[in-house]
Structure formats: structure tokens, C-alpha cells
């Protein structure tokens, strides 16, 4: 029976290994400098890149972070300080609910609020949809990280005559910052590859656009379009795009691990 658990471990890690091997094998051969610097070419022409999609993804991540980080950190501060109020319980439960909602559901409600009324798709709507997904992730990790900070530090600051708000920000939040940064990075990694919330909001763009009011290209959308298209050239680009996307996400995930390890190592008691 013990051998079976070893087998389970091998079988569970096998898909990851397979996916990474295929990504590298099929993606690397299609990668070139042009992939990062060029625009998509029309059908039938070979070459071309995803410069607009890479930039678009970065812009979407930026908009999402502007929404998700401050709200999530603020909400996390509230939860960590008001542990047992009815509002805290409600917020904790609903942030789990929000975290579990299918991303496509978040996508169509963003469409209902931000696309339908104005009559056109936009980068802003996509960023808001992704930001909505970030909020519960950042909220819960912020709360967890703040609770690790010993109460004695908070008391020491209060005893020095720090007002509550300064205690919370300059001492408690500051001490937990590395952990919160890790949580933020994990949240960014999680939304960076999201496609479904963008289908009816950012929708994608064959052209160069950095405007928040226009449709914008994104790597996941471009991978989806190329993977499901009929041309071999597109398939090659989809693999290259996937390799780039997974590299970005892996770098962020690994950075998150190291952020915790190297900077949170200052035990107080």
C-alpha cells in the first residue's frame, strides 16, 4: 500500500513534467526575438510576434493590481484587527465565495457593468474583472500574514504613543510586508494566465493599443485564438506564447517563494 502512495506521487507530478517538456520542446523552437518585438502578421504570412499581447497582459496585470492590492490589503487589515465582528465573518466567508466563483461568471458580470452600458469592449473592463479575482486572494493572505505579527509589537508601538493607525501601518503592516508581497505575487501569478474573464471584456486586439478604453490584446487570449485556429503557423505561435506565459508565471511564483524565505526570517521572540 505504501508503494501505491509513491505511485500516486509519480502520477500526480507526471502531467506537470509532460506539460513542461512539451512546452519547452514545441515552444522554444518557435521563439525568437521577433516574437517579443513584432506584431502579429496576417494569415498566411509566416513570422510575426506577440509584442502587443505581451504589453497588453502587463497593462491588464497593472490595472488589476491597482484595484486588487489596495482593496485586498485594506480588507486584510480590517479582518486582522476586527477578528470577531459579524462583518469580519461575513467578509471572510464571502471572500472564499468570491474566490470560488468561476472566472467566466466574473467575466460576464464585468461585461454587464462595464461593456454593455458603454457599448464597446475595453482594457479597463478586463482589468477590473482580473482585479475582482485578486481581491479575495490578497485579502486572505494579508490577514494571515498580519496575524503572524506578534501582538507584543503592536502593544510596544501603542505604548510609545503611536496612534492606532500608525501602529497598524508603520509597525504591523511593515513587519508583515514581505509575507504580503509574497501573497500579492501569488495573486498576480494566478490572474496573469486567466483567459475566461477577458473573453468578453478585453476581448483581444490584433493591433497595437495601450488605451484602457479600447480592446486590448493579452497573451492568454492570443494563445487561445491561435491554438483553436486552423493554421500550423498559428499553432507554433501558440506554443511559443504559452512558453512565454508559463515562464512569466513560474518566475513570479518562484520569486514569491524566495521573498518569504529571505526576508521574513527575523523572528521576534
Amino acid at each position: 500500500m505504501i508503494g501505491l502512495t509513491y505511485l500516486a506521487a509519480i502520477l500526480a507530478t507526471l502531467p506537470l513534467v509532460l506539460i513542461l517538456v512539451h512546452l519547452i520542446a514545441k515552444g522554444a523552437s518557435s521563439l525568437s526575438l521577433a516574437f517579443f518585438t513584432h506584431m502579429p502578421r496576417p494569415v498566411g504570412e509566416s513570422g510575426g510576434g506577440m509584442a502587443n499581447a505581451i504589453v497588453g497582459t502587463l497593462i491588464l496585470i497593472g490595472v488589476a493590481s491597482l484595484i486588487g492590492l489596495p482593496i485586498g490589503i485594506g480588507a486584510g487589515l480590517h479582518l486582522a484587527e476586527k477578528r470577531t465582528t459579524p462583518l469580519a465573518y461575513t467578509v471572510r466567508f464571502l471572500s472564499d465565495v468570491l474566490n470560488g466563483l468561476p472566472s467566466i461568471v466574473i467575466g460576464i458580470s464585468a461585461w454587464e457593468f462595464l461593456v454593455r452600458p458603454v457599448g464597446h469592449f475595453s482594457a479597463l473592463a478586463g482589468g477590473v474583472a482580473l482585479g475582482t479575482m485578486m481581491v479575495p486572494l490578497v485579502t486572505r493572505t494579508t490577514e494571515e500574514m498580519l496575524l503572524v505579527v506578534p501582538t507584543s509589537l503592536r502593544e510596544a508601538a501603542l505604548a510609545l504613543g503611536y496612534p492606532k493607525w500608525r501602529t497598524s501601518i508603520a509597525v504591523v503592516l511593515r513587519t508583515a510586508l514581505a509575507g504580503i508581497a509574497t501573497g500579492a505575487l501569488v495573486a498576480v501569478a494566478r490572474i496573469a494566465g486567466e483567459t475566461a474573464p477577458l473573453l468578453f471584456t478585453a476581448i483581444g486586439n490584433q493591433f497595437w493599443s495601450t488605451s484602457l478604453r479600447e480592446p486590448i490584446a493579452a497573451l492568454p487570449l492570443q494563445i487561445f485564438a491561435y491554438a483553436t485556429g486552423p493554421y500550423d503557423e498559428w499553432h507554433r505561435l501558440a506554443w511559443a506564447g504559452a512558453l512565454v506565459l508559463i515562464t512569466i508565471i513560474l518566475i513570479i511564483s518562484i520569486a514569491a517563494r524566495f521573498a518569504t524565505r529571505s526576508r521574513f526570517g527575523a523572528p521576534v521572540d
Binding site: 507584543s152 509589537l153 501603542l158 505604548a159 510609545l160 500608525r166 509597525v171 521576534v268 521572540d269
Partner: peptide, 29 residues
């Protein structure tokens, strides 16, 4: 609290601050 200092059971230096900044922490306010 600004006029009545307090020290606790366990040492509570602010871990993100230098020694100097710790001593000056109450001063800043």
C-alpha cells in the same frame, strides 16, 4: 502614553527598523 514609557516581558524591538530607528521610534511622533 507619550509621557509614560512602558517595557514588556519579552523584548519588542521593531524588526524592520535599525537600532537607531528603534530608539527614535517614539521621537518621530
Amino acid at each position: 502614553r507619550r509621557h509614560v514609557g512602558m517595557v514588556f516581558q519579552r523584548p519588542t524591538p521593531f524588526p524592520t527598523m535599525s537600532i537607531r530607528a528603534n530608539v527614535a521610534a517614539g521621537l518621530r511622533i
